[in-house]
């Protein structure tokens, strides 16, 4: 019977020792009673170095203020219950690295004394991955918003803050921002209908252009793309918005400029042509004096010179408006 009991303890001890999470059994004042292999691997401190004392906690939390804040947090939790869950702290390992540990504890009585089993999961890699992902989202030059059910905002990156003027804290967990971005009820309704129609047909939309009103009361044109992603049984919409206001302004300006220039080039050339033909006819009929012929011809030459100057002005404007023109064409257009 005793042998079976010992065998059971041995198996349990081996399981604890080989577990992939840090397991420490603590006595009063945090004195370490047991320290498994994973705890040694993660922290760099061997069981021999830590068991029997609580000094390891000072080594793991060398910054006094941080240690104090962790201790306070634990004390606060233990005031109301005898364990805590998912408490995240950052430890300093023996080699000087930082590791993020997610702690869960359980207090058990043993032989009239209280023992705390602290289980620490090394979530450093996950946290780094998340931080990296968040950093990508935050530093993207496009507005990224992740929407939960009924349009509740779950993610709102820095570009979203810059473009709309609404901060992360103002919008997260809420959905009122859409009313602020689309204050005109009729326009908001038309956009909602359009989105609903597209979503019902294909679950996502591409390059949907809307005009938002920012917190600073500016109007910005946003081109939206969305994707639906699942997180377990829950679906989220990722909305990516590109601010195309300047692009649209430039396009409108270019169209206006091209229209103006085509009006100021095509028509005048026709006028010169007709004036010369009419003048030739009048000359044939002997109706023009030499002075009048000179005046007409010089006048049309001046018109042609002015048209040439207008074309040069047009070419210069094209170069100034478009930075992506290849160098060889740029030089030609600049004359």
């Amino acid at each position: 019977m005793e042998s079976t009991q010992n065998q059971k303890f041995c198996i349990e001890a081996e399981i604890l020792d080989n577990a992939l999470v840090m397991i420490a059994v603590l006595g009063d004042k945090g004195r370490v009673i047991s320290w498994n292999h994973a705890a040694e691997t993660i922290t760099g401190y061997s069981p021999e170095a830590v068991i029997g004392s609580n000094a390891v906690w000072k080594d793991l939390y060398p910054d006094r203020d941080y240690r104090k804040s962790v201790t306070q947090k634990i004390a606060d939790i233990l005031k109301t219950k005898n364990s805590f869950e998912n408490l995240e702290t950052v430890i300093r390992t023996r080699s000087g690295d930082s590791r993020t540990i997610l702690w869960n504890t359980k207090t058990i009585p043993e032989g009239g004394q209280t023992r705390t089993i602290a289980v620490g999961m090394d979530v450093t890699a996950e946290r780094e991955t998340k931080a990296f992902r968040d950093s990508i989202i935050d530093n993207a030059y496009v507005l990224i918003a992740v929407l939960g059910q009924k349009g509740t905002i779950r993610v709102w990156n820095k570009a979203a803050e810059v473009i709309t003027g609404y901060s992360h804290d103002e919008v997260i967990g809420r959905r009122e921002v859409w009313k602020k971005l689309y204050p005109d009820a009729e326009y908001r309704r038309s956009i909602t209908q359009k989105i609903s129609k597209i979503i019902s047909e294909q679950k996502y939309f591409e390059n949907l252009e809307t005009t938002i009103l920012t917190k600073n009361r500016d109007k910005r044109i946003i081109s939206w793309n969305t994707r639906q992603v699942s997180a377990g049984s829950v679906y989220h919409e990722i909305a990516i918005g590109r601010d195309i206001t300047e692009q649209r302004k430039a396009e409108v300006a270019l169209v206006a400029y091209m229209t103006e220039m085509s009006m100021r080039l095509k028509q005048p050339v026709g006028i010169i042509s007709n004036t010369l033909l009419e003048s030739a006819q009048l000359m044939k009929e002997g109706m023009l004096t030499p002075d009048e012929i000179i005046t007409v011809l010089e006048g049309q030459a001046r018109n042609a010179t002015q048209i040439e100057a207008n074309i040069q002005e047009f070419q210069t404007a094209i170069v100034e408006q478009n930075g992506s023109i290849p160098e060889i064409f740029r030089k030609f257009l600049e004359g």
């Binding site: 103006e260 009006m263 100021r264 028509q267 005048p268 006028i271 018109n303 002015q306 048209i307 207008n310």
Partner: peptide, 12 residues
């Protein structure tokens, strides 16, 4: 005479 000729010298 005429608005069109003026377009050579002036913007619309």
């Amino acid at each position: 005479d005429s608005v069109s000729t003026m377009l050579i010298y002036l913007s619309s």
